[in-house]
């Protein structure tokens, strides 16, 4: 896809030397009790995770970019950093345009509330005004195809239904930049197709889309650029077919034997 006339000299997203690190525990549920117990034993379980290291790239307006890489490569962290949820610990990220995210599945904020109320909450959190929400509400509800479930509490939803609602909210915020993390993995086949269509539509409307996926086929189909991350570092950025080929080869031969010059 060519960049359209509205795109500017500024890239949609520019990431300069970004490193993201954070401290976390690997406890499932951190409790005061376990903290005291650890203190007694003199253990520390806080780990410094360096999720991204010195990553730099630029993405132009109108690009749909697929992000691939093994588990723990820092794909989700990169998305969160671009969305502003996890600001970088070093470097600088510049985002030009309105961002809508679909990172963790489910708008499901308060499961006691109805789908309708969750849509309103999600929209307001994203910075929409009430008037806008009222305008777009019908569209969102129609796209999610929840029928009468839209007025039932979210706890009655199946996981596919809440994923559908989340996807619908994310794409209807009229984003300039859409960030999607593995969103197509739930939902039935019919909705997957519909979601893919909608994503292509977003991409064609000069939107910029980031898609994290393990499904190479959807990256090839939906993206006109790909970016490969490995252990927090940027390995390659370019044409999806080439990047995927390199990545696939890397997976086959293993890390040690691989160098990009082999390509």
């Amino acid at each position: 896809m060519t960049t359209n006339s509205t795109s500017t000299a500024d890239p949609a997203v520019s990431v300069e030397n970004v490193s993201v690190s954070y401290r976390t525990t690997f406890e499932k549920v951190p409790t005061f009790r376990s903290a005291v117990r650890r203190l007694g034993r003199g253990q520390r379980v806080v780990h410094l995770v360096e999720a991204l290291r010195e990553v730099s790239f630029e993405v132009n307006h109108g690009t749909s970019i697929g992000i691939i890489g093994a588990n723990g490569a820092g794909k989700s962290t990169l998305m969160r950093a671009i969305a502003g949820i996890l600001p970088p610990s070093e470097g600088r990220i510049e985002v030009h345009g309105r961002v809508s995210t679909l990172l963790a599945l489910g708008v499901g904020f308060n499961r006691k509330l109805s789908g309708r109320e969750n849509v309103v909450l999600g929209g307001l959190a994203a910075g929409m005004t009430r008037e806008e929400l009222n305008e777009r509400y019908e569209e969102i509800a129609d796209f999610a195809e929840l029928g009468e479930f839209i007025d039932m509490p979210m706890q009655t939803y199946s996981s596919g239904m809440s994923a559908r609602l989340a996807f619908s909210v994310a794409v209807h915020l009229n984003p300039d930049i859409l960030l999607i993390d593995e969103a197509l993995s739930t939902g039935d086949a019919k909705f997957k197709q519909k979601a893919a269509r909608k994503m292509r539509e977003v991409a064609e409307n000069a939107g910029t889309m980031f898609l994290v996926s393990h499904a190479m086929r959807s990256v090839k189909r939906l993206c006109n650029e790909a970016l490969w991350l490995h252990k927090g570092q940027l390995m390659m950025q370019g044409d999806p077919t080439e990047v995927i080929a390199a990545y696939t080869k890397f997976l086959e031969v293993g890390e040690d034997a691989f160098s990009l010059e082999d390509m």
Partner: peptide
Amino acid sequence: RQPGQMNATRLDEDFTSSVHVYEP
């Protein structure tokens, strides 16, 4: 920029921020 890409209605602009810079 106004007509197409930003979908800029008056309402939009109140919260559409077009430039975000994230730094440490």
